[in-house]
């Protein structure tokens, strides 16, 4: 199986409290923030590796995993990180970070999919900076492919995937024939979430994403990474959504500490009147 994994670098979500808004509110100031792969996309890479191997022999790739990102030269770092975990090739669509929206990324990815002809596009359900949750769905629409969003489990069948989607109140199971677009949720990296045809159903993965050993990091420097100008994939680089202003979230004022349970219950009953 050939899998294309689009991924985005984002400001480290665990340091998001350092996000600064320019004084005039016109933009988010990302200087000094540490870049990381969007966690959901990182999970998609892990899921792609699991789908292209026998879990018992994870160093042998039984398919091809191509990672793609959009951004300036510095975004190569993020691609190299993914090549070190086991992806085979990388593509960087050259552009600046702020010249993009979900629609444009989807339009450019469509052109890339037509070149690469993967069996599956696997990606995170959303990026944790813009939190827009839309590229996978729009891409599926543009390609005329079936989609399954918020995947928590993936099981390979001959020419198809059985996908468990986490939705409100339960799990929807869909069977999608390839090629298809699948977006992944947090639980996709749990020990028994993903099974390729080659992996025994008794196999259990380590929880989370795999680490890259130093030799793999060195080897990743030699793996192919090509650069494609954005306009070559999408001559129309117009945006569908425009941001005019950013502002900090309202501050919720801290309340009081109570000495014991009795006072807490008294406050909830008589002051807050919520019990």
């Amino acid at each position: 199986m050939k899998i294309l994994v689009p991924l985005k670098r984002v400001a480290d979500p665990d340091n998001a409290n350092k996000i600064k808004i320019a004084p005039d509110g016109a933009k988010i100031d990302t200087t000094g923030l540490e870049w990381k792969p969007n966690p959901f996309d990182e999970y998609a890479v892990e899921a792609a590796l699991r789908l292209t191997e026998n879990g018992a022999t994870p160093k042998v790739r039984g398919g091809e995993v191509v990672v793609v990102t959009f951004g300036p030269k510095e975004a190569d770092t993020t691609l190299r990180q993914m090549l070190a975990t086991g992806a085979d090739r990388a593509v960087r669509v050259d552009t600046t970070d702020d010249a993009l929206d979900g629609s444009l990324v989807a339009r450019a990815l469509k052109a890339l999919v037509e070149r690469e002809k993967p069996d599956l596009v696997l990606m995170g359900k959303q990026a944790v900076d813009g939190d827009s949750n839309q590229v996978g769905q729009i891409l599926a629409e543009l390609l005329g492919w079936p989609m399954a969003t918020f995947a928590a489990t993936l099981q390979e069948e001959a020419g198809a995937l059985l996908v468990g989607r986490e939705v409100d109140g339960g799990v929807i199971t869909l069977r999608v024939k390839l090629p298809a677009v699948v977006t992944v949720d947090l639980r996709i990296v749990a020990p028994t979430s993903v099974y390729s045809l080659a992996t025994a159903r008794t196999h259990k993965y380590a929880d989370g994403v795999r680490f890259s050993a130093l030799p793999a990091i060195m080897a990743a420097k030699k793996k192919p990474l090509i650069e494609v100008p954005l306009a070559e994939l999408s001559p129309d680089t117009s945006l569908r959504i425009a941001y005019s202003k950013f502002e900090p979230p309202p501050v919720r004022k801290a309340g009081v500490k109570v000495p014991d349970v009795a006072v807490l219950v008294d406050k909830l009953v008589n002051e807050a009147k919520v019990l």
């Binding site: 400001a11 998001a16 409290n17 996000i19 988010i28 569908r240 950013f246 979230p249």
Partner: peptide, 16 residues
């Protein structure tokens, strides 16, 4: 819209 894990809000508009 809340963005960046709720650390900033963005005002946006759409022209389509």
């Amino acid at each position: 819209r809340p963005m960046f894990a709720g650390n900033a809000y963005g005002w946006c508009s759409i022209d389509t």
